[in-house]
Amino acid sequence: MVNCRNVLAVLVLLLCIELILRCFGFCDALLYRESPSYEYIALPDQDRYRFGAHIKTNSFSQRNSEEPDTSRQIILGLGDSVLFGGTMTDQDDLASTLFSLETGMQMLNISAGSWGPDNCAAYLKEKGTFGAKAMVLVCSSHDAYDRMSHVPVVGKFPNYPDRQYKVAIWELLDRYIIPKLAKYWDRTMHRLDPDETVANHVENAVVQPKSPMEYPINDGFGELKAIADSMEIPFLIYLHAEKGELEAGEYNDMGKAILQWAEENNVRCVKGLEDGETPAMYRDGIHLNEDGQKHLAKCLEILLAD
């Protein structure tokens, strides 16, 4: 006969675990939707608390706490997960938030994990430029040839969910524990999403600088410049150094291709490699921690003040 006390104890334990997990943000993940234009983007008007970080998006799916404010000077901040910050970065610690607070301008954070310049350009073609006075692209060397593939990721990978879990314990098992264990018996079950793929490649890459590749650079660079030129506003680039490049003391061949394109097209490009980035500012091979976001904000202030 089942001992009622033991059953009750198990139920109480499970309830406690469920409540604790919800306090850490389980069942409150940032949700995404697919886009035929720019692959995917966070859903608009979200207000989440996840792993101690506050995460918000406005009605344009920008990672901003506020709507675009035409009474302020608007700057378009464009990029991938470096600018987006990921779910580990609190809204108040984002470089775009800090920039806005320090300057009085408003930097719109138009970004998503593993976005390239072509994703950003496609977004602006669909949504417009919000009366911006300048555009700044925060990119890394791998963005030189990282083109949109439109391979479905939303609802396919744990980091791009399209709906909330109803039970926190199941989310813990299904999103984190089972995939980690699965790779030991079936490697096909453990696939990296686009942003993880980039981060994993960068983390394990051996930096051996070569001459720039001979095939064309991502079309998004030219598209963004064309949009800025049509609006008669500046287009600027901040080339964030990958950690391996920082340790090697120079950009890899893809980074050099971006620098070459910027020089040939008369686009001002600030090099993070020469602008004070240090290994202590990184979470992994590419993403910035809170100190890195602060540094990026200061660099963007200097870049846009000139």
Rank of each mutant, 00 (worst) to 15 (best):
D28W: 04
M135T: 06
E67S: 15
P158R: 00
L101D: 12
F24E: 07
Y123N: 06
L181E: 03
Y251W: 15
N109Y: 07
R163D: 03
N58I: 10
D118I: 00
P179G: 09
I178K: 06
Y32W: 14
P234N: 01
F130N: 00
S81K: 05
F221P: 01
P234I: 03
V2W: 14
S37H: 10
D291N: 11
F130D: 05
E247V: 10
G52C: 02
S140A: 13
K180P: 05
T197E: 15
L83N: 07
A182Q: 07
E290F: 00
K225Q: 15
V154A: 02
R268G: 09
S211T: 12
T197R: 15
K56C: 14
L19Y: 06
C269E: 03
F84K: 00
V151T: 15
L288W: 11
L8A: 13
P158H: 05
E245F: 02
M254D: 11
S211P: 00
F99E: 06
C16A: 15
L13E: 10
N159I: 00
G244K: 02
D229P: 04
L98S: 03
R5A: 07
L76R: 02
C4G: 13
L259S: 01
M231R: 15
V151H: 14
S149K: 15
K225F: 03
V154D: 02
S65K: 11
C269S: 10
M254K: 13
S149H: 13
T70N: 12
P212Y: 05
P68T: 00
S114Y: 00
L31G: 02
F24D: 04
V267M: 03
L108F: 03
V206Q: 15
L224K: 03
I233V: 14
D80E: 10
E290W: 05
G255R: 07
L31S: 03
I258W: 02
D146C: 12
K271M: 09
D90S: 14
R268T: 11
E250L: 14
D45G: 00
G52L: 03
H142N: 09
M107V: 14
K125I: 10
G104N: 08
D146K: 11
N218E: 05
R63C: 10
I20F: 09
H150F: 14
S37R: 11
A228R: 01
